[in-house]
Design a protein around this nucleic acid. Structure first.
Lengths: 213, 213
DNA sequence: GGGATTTTGTGAACAGTGTTCAAAAATGCA
DNA sequence: TGCATTTTTGAACACTGTTCACAAAATCCC
């Protein structure tokens, strides 16, 4: 009897994700996981080094799912023969919005997780999964007639992503879901429109001059 | 002897901020505060309802400081006779970057704080302090020759802010402070440049059409 | 002043945490 | 079967936030 070790690990992760999604970060308790998975507390620590380890693993799954959602949105548009940059960027942003809405607890938990300790060495497995997304965006930008060099396009892709992310997570505070829900759409549309128009106009984006102050 | 009640509260907040700044959210412990403030644990709960209450109060101070930094940056530029929109926006973004760098632990703690529970009623005191910032940005935008109606300008201000915020907080993960430090500057410069160029071009930003697939 | 009353401060106690680790149960092997 | 090895267990430990009966201090009122 008893399931495979790896199988049990998967079950633990599924349970953990539900817990995170329902109650946020401090709803992820070792005893709750153990009880719901039908194992003992000690076994949880046998499968994962930490509760942080569990959370990290859940986060990886989330990032994978997000990447898949982005890729799927692009594949869908390609299949429908849509190559318009604006539409593709809006589709990507829309995919992200839907993803966040589909993970109302576990996604904020991922964000909170990364902000717990001030400056901890980041697992670059994170970055790798993000680069996947950046490359999708960069690919879309390459489809437009912007004539950007590779480096600028890379930066533009990251800028776009960060901006959409900032918009979706509503600055840093303030939920008030009512009017925010369509305000997000308005902001995204403005951002994409402005971005495309701004990139269309020629001119180099050399990083010169007064950055600030 | 013994200090005023309000005075003790201020001391507690100062201690709490240092703790948050040094060790992140889970470094804010009731017993540590009590010990460092020279009072008992119970007294902490006499001054504040919760540890969350303490954290909230610290966050308010942070938001006030951020607002002041933004206003000061604008006042500085005004005094120097600088009205250029690009420079003003870059100065605002720069002020934010410096603010985040000056609060390496307590600012992430504020962000994490707001993401702990999925959907909790937000204290609108937060929003009020943010609106202050949005109005500064909207004011700057009003100085340019974009001919935007009030509503669009309001949205544009929020979009800009959210985007800068997203850029500064580096997407959602990934620190790796080395190359990120100048990448942030590059992204901000690209964003502001693109934003200004995109807004300069005429055309209405009506929120019509396919928001996303 | 001095007794009564109210306010304020205290820290032991309680209910939960994450995490460990000697022991027990299960499994592998000859 | 008997022994060795691995895996699972859950009581125990150290540490959380939070409470609340009690004590100390302050305040009031005559």
């Amino acid at each position: 009897m008893a399931l495979d070790k790896e199988e049990t690990g998967e079950r633990v992760l599924a349970i953990a994700e539900v817990l995170l999604n329902e109650g946020g970060m401090d709803n992820l308790k070792a005893r709750t996981i153990a009880e719901q998975a039908g194992i003992s507390v000690g076994s949880v620590y046998n499968l994962f080094s930490d509760l942080d380890g569990v959370h990290r693993a859940v986060n990886m799954r989330l990032l994978d799912r997000l990447g898949a959602a982005g890729a799927a949105a692009m594949a869908d548009l390609s299949q429908r023969g849509i190559t318009d940059v604006r539409q593709r960027l809006l589709a990507l942003a829309g995919a992200y919005v839907r993803f966040v809405e589909a993970h109302p607890g576990s996604w904020p938990a991922l964000l909170a997780f990364n902000r717990r300790r001030p400056t901890l060495v980041e697992p670059d497995a994170y970055e790798a999964r993000l680069d996947q997304l950046f490359e999708i965006i960069a690919g879309v930008l390459a489809g437009g007639d912007f004539d950007l060099d590779d480096d600028t396009r890379r930066i533009a892709a990251r800028t776009l992503w960060s901006s959409v992310h900032g918009i979706v997570t509503s600055g840093y505070a303030g939920r008030s879901v009512r009017r925010q829900v369509d305000e997000i759409d308005q902001q995204i549309e403005l951002l994409v429109a402005v971005f495309i128009r701004g990139l269309e106009r020629g001119g180099t984006f050399a990083h010169a001059g007064t950055t600030a102050s």
